[in-house]
Amino acid sequence: MNRFDDAEIAAVYKAIAERRDMRHFLPDPIDAALLERVLQAAHMAPSVGFMQPWRFIRITDAALRLKMHALVDQERIHTAHALGEREDAFMRLKVEGIRDCGELLVVALMDRRDAHIFGRRTLPEMDLCSVSCAIQNMWLAARAEGIGMGWVSLFDPEALRQLLHIPADAKPLAILCLGHVEAFYPRPMLELEGWAKRQRLHDLVSENAWVEAHPVVTDQPLEGKHDA
Results as ranks from 00 to 15, higher is better:
5 D>H: 07
5 D>K: 07
6 D>C: 05
11 A>R: 08
11 A>K: 08
12 V>M: 13
14 K>A: 15
18 E>P: 06
21 D>W: 04
21 D>Q: 12
21 D>A: 09
24 H>R: 14
29 P>L: 01
31 D>S: 07
32 A>P: 01
41 A>L: 00
45 A>R: 01
48 V>L: 07
53 P>M: 03
53 P>T: 00
54 W>A: 09
54 W>G: 07
57 I>V: 14
63 A>R: 08
68 M>R: 06
77 I>H: 09
82 A>G: 09
86 R>V: 09
86 R>Q: 08
90 F>Y: 14
92 R>T: 02
97 G>D: 05
104 L>V: 01
109 L>Y: 05
110 M>A: 15
115 A>K: 13
119 G>D: 04
120 R>T: 12
123 L>P: 03
126 M>Y: 10
136 Q>V: 06
138 M>N: 01
146 G>L: 03
147 I>F: 00
148 G>N: 00
150 G>L: 04
151 W>P: 07
151 W>Q: 05
152 V>F: 02
153 S>V: 12
160 L>E: 01
170 A>W: 04
171 K>T: 12
175 I>D: 02
194 G>K: 00
195 W>Y: 07
197 K>G: 13
199 Q>H: 11
201 L>W: 11
208 N>Q: 15
213 A>R: 15
214 H>T: 15
216 V>W: 00
216 V>F: 06
217 V>M: 13
228 A>Y: 14
